[in-house]
Computed example of a mutant assay.
Amino acid sequence: MNVARVILVLVFCTFFTASYFTNKYVLSILKFTFPTIFQGWQTSAGTLLLLVTWKLGWVEINGFSRSAAFSQLPGSFLFIGNIYAGSKALSLLPIPFFFVFQNVSEVLAFLIRTATHREKPPWMKLISVCMLLGSASSLMLYNPRFGPSGYTWASIHLFCVGAYRIFQKNTKTILLSDLEEQFINYLTSALLLASLAYSTGDLSGALDFPLLTSYRFYTGCLGSAIFSFCLMLATVKLKGSLSQEHCGIWFFLAKILASGLSLLLSIFHAVLSPVTLCCIILNYAGEALFLYSERFH
């Protein structure tokens, strides 16, 4: 791996960790539990930043047809479900728990591919699937204090993540680039979440938020928007520079890094029992085996 790719990987891991930490800080530590407002802010900021960087010539977004935009709408709705349920789950679960359920989205995508293509899966992949499902189920069993709400939202999140991966793989065309897809996702999310914030009463609730005048709140929200946008750019660049197999490896390592650091930071209050730690290790071992089996599929 050359120097440019090493720098890209380091930048990606940095923004990955910073993005999840700032999101967790606002959602759990500051207890800003209004996902329509929080994710609406992030997607609105992402839309604006993407337009600004495009006008400055830092990113390339070509004109796309109305039919191409409409073809992305199902993916945009899955993206909204992903970020909304993800915010709810992240506000209730420790970061390592959150990634355990996010890893199970690989199982969903695998099962759908296997059913649609009627393929006989290799034994190595079946073992990894059992490890992923078993570790997530055991985590819920030995940590009931985070459920059922936290685990329910995590389940919705993993379903949307897995379904979006299937959507991307089955509908990817040359009509839209990754950045153009993300622009449509951002714009659709910002418009829909804005209307939901008003109809659900989140807007009035957010106006009564106790820390609304605190600099910590605004710093956290600003950081979450900037880091999430930079993570998106780094992810698109990483996918364009590395193979899908190598991208999966770096996503895997970034999740391990974020999980490990979250356990070291006392601010997140993540204390794990030996059984819980074994569940998390088993889950990551299952994901590593899943990625390894992809090389021979």
Rank of each mutant, 00 (worst) to 15 (best):
S44W: 08
G223Q: 11
T276S: 08
N62R: 15
K239C: 15
F79N: 06
S28T: 14
F99S: 06
Y142M: 10
P96R: 12
A85G: 10
S137D: 07
R216T: 13
S189V: 15
S44H: 00
Y218K: 03
H117R: 15
M232C: 08
K55W: 12
T22K: 07
T219S: 13
A285F: 08
L196Q: 02
L132D: 02
V236C: 06
S28N: 12
D202W: 03
A115Q: 09
S241I: 04
R216V: 10
L289G: 11
G147C: 02
S138P: 04
L132R: 07
K239P: 07
L277M: 07
L8F: 06
L92M: 10
Y198K: 07
F290S: 13
I37V: 06
S76K: 10
Y186V: 11
P35H: 00
M131K: 09
L192R: 01
F251E: 04
V236Y: 03
E180N: 01
A234Q: 08
L30I: 10
F290H: 12
S71F: 13
L242E: 01
S138G: 14
I112P: 11
F15D: 01
W153V: 08
H297A: 14
W54C: 03
I249Q: 06
L179G: 12
Q72L: 08
I80T: 09
A89P: 10
G201L: 03
K169T: 06
S293C: 06
N170R: 15
W41Y: 13
M232N: 11
P144E: 09
L192W: 09
E287P: 05
L111K: 09
A190R: 06
L196R: 02
Y20F: 15
E245C: 04
P274I: 13
S155D: 01
F16H: 09
V129L: 10
T47I: 13
A18W: 13
K24I: 10
